[in-house]
Write a protein that binds this DNA or RNA. Structure first.
Lengths: 196, 196, 196, 196
DNA sequence: CATGAATGAGGTTTCATTCAT
DNA sequence: CATGAATGAAACCTCATTCAT
């Protein structure tokens, strides 16, 4: 017999998920500080105190959304990179994962990379981070000689810049298409950067 | 003998400048929303309402700082680019200008590119923008054949990513040095990106 | 047995009513602008923000009190007039209603007719107004020939003057008694005015 | 040689007069509390502190305007009444003076009778008041038997009501013409009221 | 348990008034 | 002397959070 808990979400978990989604929408639309718990609760269709059944405070809500998304993405690109043997294959897979996240969950992408990197200071060493995943990939490439040696952290920063800045241009309408449309260019640029 | 009025600022202008500097510090330290006019005023050594003698609202203060810094930088890199004849020279000069701004006025750099690009939506066509300056440089390079044709806006976004993301890494201590230290790498990466 | 819900007010409704009463007291004592939400809240025994649970702003509080009182009085004198067949009977009933309101709810009377007729400009056609009730009574009297034809609106204004100005004299101690004491004179004067 | 001071106003007196007129405009437009010294000063074309050269405070400005207008009107209707021998003539002259003030200086009329009767409580016995002028006229009429005996103060209140309420109706557009247009009706109504 | 009601802290802003040039 | 600059007090209002039903 299938365990009901494994197939259907309990009511509480559904509400929690709705809160997260609504919060991301509000955060993207008005900024994290300007978004109020009242608006989030109203958007979900519940009362304000009901939010506290799922998150002990607004800060906790922000932190949970951040850490879930950030670590989730870290694990995802970890898998994506591991599935490729060549360095270029790994980089392309990672870029693809970023573009996919942007195009399928825009509020989360913006929250993670454009508005809430402030949460980064709360992260500890043991939490998986997309930055560390990419950093290790670059370091490995330098170790094997696939790419020239250099400041691996700086190269990692440059790669993140290639992915995040088009998203900023997207916000202000300068790049109207989804990130997926620019993937080939991103891939080429990334390879040009890492190979010097 | 120089007229004193042309060399010394009026008292009001001095206070205004102090408010701008203090506001940038607070904005960088705690975020634009969390920074209060009270703290800014206290930091300057004036009362809260005194700020309103110089800016009609907090939003106006934010906007003025943004537009002054953003347009000022636009004009600066315009000059920097015009002083160079080759495309690579232009790009290097622009990157140098960005790095210089970062290292000499860190709060302003962060305010302009990391925390307050939200103000971009209030900009109008006639305001000079660093993005447009770079975009025209890239378009010119494509027109002369110095670099391969492509989506100039996308390339511009990539270049901005190369410059802004190291600054983000700097905030979280992953890149401890000033941007100036990374300029050679940035220049090389930028050229690699534009030449494909 | 009566349903308790139909006889006792919910806690929220009680607080709302207390706010209205306290606001009227403060408005009458110090003027609408000078009366602060803080004083009103303190008078009720609640905190300042609690007022906003019941009224979305001070202006809304003022407007609600005005419109409730003004339309309520309109309906009351409508009934009072309808219960009388003769024109003089109608006028007397209306005057009696005004005097009764003055003597039983002095703050409301003053608020409606002496300090806040400014709210009149927000009224729309579909809201019942005491002025319109009286105006229709006068027009009917002119139509039936009970009183001579003339500018019905002007006559209505005169009647309102007969009722409101003694209330002003009352404020400054020139007419110490309640309006009820002057009702006979008011009735006689009103009839003299309408009959020319 | 004519003394200049007797023919032309000194600059200070001109400014003072401008302040008074501008204040009346602002008071009429937005209410006494909502009108700010800043707006008044700007309207006159002077700085805020300059107002304090002429009036020691806002309250003093309000009081001066009130007392000048109120006592001035008292003296005017005193003369108007004295010039007539019959009671009806006196009443008509007084009404004419009110209507004239309304039509020629609407802001002052509204300030004196509709918005600032709050100042009345600061008046002392020795200041001439329009109310007292009318009251004495009525008392004299009762003494000579021209009109029936009764509560003279109440009758005075009724007469004031006849004059002030049409002005209220005028504000809200119910009586579009100037008060002068309604003078005949006012006179007739006043006489009807005083004669019972 | 979910919610209407309430709160304490604090924010931006306005205003009458004074200071200092 | 007229004014730009500054201020203290206080107003309205918002928000995250808790209480009590």
């Amino acid at each position: 017999m299938a365990d009901p808990a494994s197939t259907i979400l309990r009511k509480g978990a559904v509400t929690r998920q709705k809160i997260v989604q609504q919060a991301l929408l509000q955060f993207a639309a008005r900024g994290v500080e300007a978004a109020t718990l009242k608006d989030i609760a109203n958007g979900v269709g519940i009362s304000e105190p009901a939010v506290y059944r799922h998150f002990s405070s607004k800060a906790e809500l922000i932190w949970q959304i951040f850490i879930d998304g950030y670590c989730g993405l870290a694990e995802e690109i970890e898998r994506a990179a591991a599935a490729q043997s060549s360095l270029r294959g790994k980089i392309d897979s990672i870029i693809a994962a970023y573009c996919h996240l942007h195009d399928t969950n825009l509020p989360l992408f913006r929250f993670l990379f454009l508005t809430q990197h402030g949460q980064l200071s709360r992260m500890t060493e043991d939490m998986p981070s997309p930055v560390d995943v990419v950093l290790r990939v670059i370091e490995a490439g330098m170790a094997t000689g696939e790419i020239p040696r250099g400041n691996a952290t700086l190269v990692t920063a440059l790669l993140f810049g290639l992915v995040t800045q088009p998203a900023v241009f997207h916000i202000y309408g300068r790049l109207p298409l989804g990130m997926n449309a620019y993937m080939a260019t991103l891939s080429q640029a990334a390879w040009a950067v890492v190979t010097g």
